[in-house]
């Protein structure tokens, strides 16, 4: 208890001495759920959450990875995403099926791994619970698919 108090006083002194926190990040929990095309029980589908855009000026870029999770065989999914509100804008959910189990999307010589995605312009506290992600393209990387779907 005494150690906690000391640490608290130390932190308070630091904050007072320097005016504010070095960084103050706010994460909002976003409930993502829906369905992805099924690809068979033996294959994993990787679902990746990206900002639609991040940065400004010359450093602006289209998508930026936030988090990723795995859905065995595709089908229904349910995930609680921690979304950092201040870093980027929008949300793009990208999914790809790892048919050969190598952990890589369309490694050299592989041309048949299906991908799909869906965009959410402004994530809110309301659950995004009816996401439908058809895996309708082959081997299209996330930045290309986002560019095709969001523009």
């Amino acid at each position: 208890m005494e150690l906690r108090v000391r640490r608290g006083v130390f932190l308070l002194a630091l904050v007072v001495a320097t005016g504010c926190w070095s960084s103050d990040e706010v994460l909002f929990e976003v409930a993502l759920s829906g369905t992805i095309d099924e690809v068979g029980d033996e294959a994993d589908v990787w679902v990746e959450a990206y900002y639609q855009s991040i940065g400004s000026g010359e450093l602006a870029t289209d998508i930026f990875l936030i988090d990723a999770f795995r859905v065995s065989g595709g089908g229904a999914f349910d995930y609680q995403l921690l979304y950092p509100v201040d870093r980027g804008r929008g949300l793009f959910v990208y999914a790809w099926a790892d048919l050969d189990g190598d952990g890589a999307l369309c490694a050299p010589g592989v041309t048949d791994e299906p991908v799909g995605g869906v965009g959410i312009d402004a994530p809110t506290e309301e659950p995004a619970d009816e996401l439908q992600i058809p895996l309708g393209a082959l081997c299209t990387p996330p930045e290309r698919l986002a560019w095709e779907m969001l523009r």
Binding site: S22, E25, V26, Q80
Partner: peptide
């Protein structure tokens, strides 16, 4: 550096 993270759960 002292960084703070605030997480708002559903």
């Amino acid at each position: 550096l002292h960084d703070r993270t605030r997480t708002y759960r559903l």
